[in-house]
């Protein structure tokens, strides 16, 4: 089971944080955080940027941890596949949340 978990953990964490960021955007819009100033930007932009960077950091940390035991597998096959799926998670984190973090607006 732990071998299967190693293969699934990277994208699983991405999916959870992706959903969380989506929820965060919903909250930011409903609470009008785009009108609140923070660090020279809107609070919404700051929060979403932070969420993006945090997601990248977590995805990157998982990828690094999978390189060697205890989180990394001793089986070469599972190691390769888990690194590939964790890399998928990292790329997905950078790619899919980039527009959210940098370029999002609230409609109406």
């Amino acid at each position: 089971m732990s071998e299967v978990a190693r293969i699934l953990i990277g994208p699983l964490v991405w999916l959870a944080l992706f959903t969380a960021t989506y929820a965060l955007h919903g909250i930011a819009c409903s609470q009008a955080w785009y009108d609140v100033d923070a660090l020279g930007l809107s609070l919404m932009r700051v929060v979403l940027l932070a969420a993006w960077l945090a997601t990248i950091a977590v995805a990157g940390a998982i990828l690094l941890a999978l390189l060697r035991p205890p989180l990394g597998s001793r089986s070469p096959f599972v190691r390769t596949v888990s690194l590939a799926t964790a890399a998928t998670g990292l790329v997905a984190a950078v790619w899919t949340l980039f527009p959210v973090a940098t370029n999002s607006i609230c409609m109406a």
Binding site: F18, H25, F98, P99, V100, N103, S104, I105, C106, M107
Partner: peptide
């Protein structure tokens, strides 16, 4: 919201 569109668009192409 358009942002959500943008990010699902990104995921969809990925």
């Amino acid at each position: 919201p358009n942002m959500a569109l943008a990010f699902f668009s990104a995921a969809s192409t990925l």
